[in-house]
Design a binder for these strands. Structure first.
Lengths: 186, 186
DNA sequence: CCCACGCGTTAACCCAGGTTTATTTCAATG
DNA sequence: CATTGAAATAAACCTGGGTTAACGCGTGGG
C-alpha cells in the first residue's frame, strides 16, 4: 500500500474523463509563489517536477518550514480547500516547477465517485499520514542533532538542493545552531 | 466538511451490513493497554467513551505523548495496519474506555466499497490531517509557553482530566519546565 | 571590474529548559 | 492509622540553542 507511486496516481488523475479540460498547467520559476500565506487558495496542485517549500511566517518575523515537495507530489492548503480559510502557510518554488491545478471540490468529487481513483486518493492520504506521523515523531522526540542526522540519511537528494538556512528552518533551529551541529559531527 | 461528527461516523460503521459480527466490543480499565509499542496490531478501534494516550518510549527512557483521544474517536497504528510493522507507539487508557475493534483490512475494504462510508472515511482522514497540521505547527513554530497556552485554550475539558506530567510530555517538555511556565504565567 | 548580497561560519553572551535532588501534599493501600 | 508512592513544586547547576555581530566566500548585476 505504502510507498506510493505518484507517477501513476497523477497520471490516472489527469487521464480521468471528468477532469479533461478542468486542469490548468502552470510553470513556476524559481522564487515564484504557488500560493501565499493569508490567501485563500482552493486548488489542488499535482506537481510533475521541481522543488517547493511550504513554510510559515510567524508574527515575530521568523520562518519555519513545514515541508518540502520534490519532483512528484500533490500539494495545497487544506484550510483553504476544506474550509475556505486563508492558508496558514506559503508555497514557494525553490526551483522551476511544473504543476497541474484543479479546483479542489471538483477534484474530490471526481475521485470519490471513481472506484479506482478513490483507492488512489485513500492510499495517498494514508501515505501522507505516515509521512506526517514521522515528522511529528522527529519534532517531538528527537534532538536537533538527531533530527539533522535523520534528515541527511532519509533525504540525501533533497539535501543537495537546499541551503543550510532552509534545512535549519525545517528542523526548527537557526542556521547558526545547524552550523554548530555540523561542526560537532566532524 | 470539518468538524467531524464522530457519533454519526461510528454509528454508520457499526450499522454496516458487511461489518455485522466482525467487530469486537472491549472495555479497558484505567491503566490497561489497547496495544503496546513494538507489537503488531492490525486492528482499527472505534472509541465510544474514555480517554486514551498515544505515546512513544524513546531509547533513553523518556516518554513523549503523540496525542490524546477523548470520548469519541478512531485510533490505531498506521504502521501496523498498512505495513504490518510493529507500532512505534503505545495506546494506554487513562480512564475506563469502551471500543469496538475491526480487522483493519476488512474495515478499509468495506468503507472503500460503500458510496456513503467512503465519504465518511475521507472526511475523517481530512479532519485528522487538519488536526495533525495544527500539531505540527505547534511543535515547529511555538515556544513551550505559547504551546501550553494554546493547549489550555483549545482543550479545556481534556486539561481537567490529565496530570501535569502528561501535559508536559505532550508539549515536549519536562513536568518541571511546565511547573516553571505555570509560575511565570501568574 | 567592482560592489552588493546571500550564504556559511565563528565567537561572545544570554536564556529557556533539562538534570538532579529535596520537600510537601494527597490519595491509595495494608 | 501508618505507609507507600505518585504528583507538584522548588532550588542549584548545566547545556543546547537563540541573539547579535563580525568576517570570508562566491556569484551575479551594474
Amino acid at each position: 500500500m505504502v510507498p506510493l507511486d505518484f507517477e501513476s496516481f497523477i497520471h490516472r488523475i489527469e487521464a480521468h474523463p471528468q477532469l479533461q479540460g478542468v486542469g490548468l498547467r502552470t510553470v513556476y520559476q524559481k522564487g515564484e509563489y504557488i500560493f501565499k500565506q493569508g490567501e485563500i487558495c482552493q486548488k489542488v496542485f499535482c506537481m510533475h517536477n521541481g522543488l517547493v517549500k511550504l513554510y510559515y511566517n510567524t508574527q515575530d518575523g521568523k520562518e519555519w518550514i513545514k515541508s518540502f515537495v520534490l519532483d512528484q507530489g500533490v500539494l495545497g492548503s487544506r484550510s483553504s480547500q476544506l474550509m475556505g480559510k486563508p492558508s496558514p502557510f506559503s508555497a514557494l518554488c525553490l526551483e522551476k516547477t511544473e504543476v497541474q491545478s484543479y479546483p479542489y471540490k471538483r477534484f474530490a468529487e471526481v475521485c470519490l465517485d471513481d472506484h479506482d481513483l478513490v483507492r488512489d486518493l485513500f492510499n495517498f492520504l494514508q501515505w501522507l499520514g505516515v509521512k506526517k506521523e514521522i515528522r511529528e515523531y522527529q519534532l517531538l522526540c528527537l534532538s536537533a542533532e538527531d533530527a539533522y542526522k535523520d534528515f541527511l540519511h532519509t533525504n540525501p537528494k533533497l539535501v543537495e538542493r537546499l541551503t543550510q538556512v532552509d534545512i535549519a528552518h525545517y528542523l526548527g533551529i537557526t542556521p547558526i545552531a545547524l552550523s554548530r551541529i555540523k561542526k560537532r559531527l566532524t
